[in-house]
């Protein structure tokens, strides 16, 4: 399944409608759906936040085989930002030392498998897999 979204947080509801449609068609569990929504939101909002004036919509591709969900998110006009690069979030830091930001990508890296990033001709392509079990 494919769909494109404008670069605004207001599109999140449509993004979730898209993932909902996909998970219903394939009878995907609530647990996997939560992780799918979370990973897709974090990556989509990251693109919107750091590249709001990029040209063109952000494109999502979801596919399914019997064992896993495959996700690809494409930004057709962006500077490189490798989301697969290891981020350090010090979870032992006290509240005073913690600042918001960076947590979303850290969560994605914790929850998905085979997170990959490609950048060519200003196009960023992020892909990952979600095992069903």
């Amino acid at each position: 399944m494919d769909r494109s979204f404008r670069r605004t947080f207001g599109q999140l509801q449509s993004v979730f409608e898209f993932t909902n449609e996909f998970t219903q068609i394939h009878a995907i569990s609530e647990r996997v759906r939560y992780v799918l929504d979370l990973a897709v939101e974090e990556l989509f909002t990251n693109m919107v936040k750091y590249n709001p004036s990029g040209k063109g919509d952000i494109h999502m591709h979801l596919s399914f085989d019997k064992k896993e969900v495959l996700v690809q998110i494409t930004d057709p006009d962006s500077d490189p930002f490798d989301v697969s690069k290891q981020r350090s979030v010090d979870l032992k830091r006290s509240l005073e030392e913690r600042k918001p930001g960076g947590l979303g990508i850290y969560l994605v890296q914790k929850l998905v498998e085979n997170l990959q990033y490609e950048h060519q001709n200003r196009t960023s392509i992020i892909s990952f897999r979600l095992p069903l079990e």
Partner: peptide, 19 residues
């Protein structure tokens, strides 16, 4: 039913002032 890092960020933003 759902929370992402943006939601967690709200708790982080206010806890210091509250305490």
């Amino acid at each position: 039913t759902y929370i992402s890092s943006a939601g967690l960020g709200v708790f982080m933003a206010y806890i210091e002032d509250v305490r």
